[in-house]
Design a binder for these strands. Sequence first.
DNA 1: CTCCAGGGAGCCT
DNA 2: AGGCTCCATGGA
Length: 302
Amino acid sequence: METGAIPRSAIAGPFDLQATLESGQTFRWTREEGRTYLDPAPRGGEQWYRVVLDDGPVAVRQTEAAIEWRATGDATDALRRRLRLDEEMAAAVDALPDDPLPRAAASAFPGLHVVSEPFFPTLVSFILSAQMRVERIHDLVGRLSDRYGRAHEFDGETVHAYPTPEQLAAATESELREMGLGYRAPYVVETTRMVADGDLGREDVAGMGYEDARSRLTEFVGVGEKVADCVLLFSFEATEPVPLDTWIRRAIDEHYPEVEQSNYDETSRDIRARLGPEPGVAQTYVFHYLRHREHLAESPAD
DNA sequence: CTCCAGGGAGCCT
DNA sequence: AGGCTCCATGGA
């Protein structure tokens, strides 16, 4: 076991590990204490989070001085890429329009980073996300990993990687239904097959412009405009996508009533034009803020 | 009991 | 293209 630390001085701007990992962008990281990751844990509690990276399992926590990690090899570079530690999210925040909602969201979680997660896990996770609560998506992703992903020994425990397309291709629709995926089970089966067979993959989309890429991703079964936006935002480092989920749609009704919500394409363009130069970053802040603002008062002041 | 969750597919005009 | 209905499951 190796240990290491990325000092705060080596991170661009403010960073908040808990907000970053628990804001519904990625469902692979698990808090070591407690299975679900959105139970009301204290903010800033220096909890360890665990995930399996390409090189194996890693545990990460944030202290006042640094991002600390434990892993079987040097995890510094992989963490820098996943958590985008070299990028100054505050630049996008500073450029936010002078609207109350995005401003409040940004000041509530100043260290929230948009992540850069791998393609296939993100694709399947957000197929699962349809009509499902964030906590439950996290739970189901854990179940898929435990059953189909590669097992690693770590700290005397067994931890599982997210399954590869080839591994998940072994899952049948009835198996997935028994695991609780519901009507999403056949979507996962077919999309996994498409990726495993090379019908469509990350590299087919990587060079395209935003709207073309989004359209191409909807060729996957179970992937519509909204899920495609999530995949582009959280695994392609795209800055444009504003996933129009129920929370954001309600926020538009409330705070941007002049934005008409007829079809996805028009609504997307309209709201993107109002959220500054990196609307996807703004959206990520707003989403997390909307889901937590009623609990903010309970937390001790930062 | 009802309502809702980071929606999408299938079918109909 | 745009609208409607159905789809599993668990928690509040």
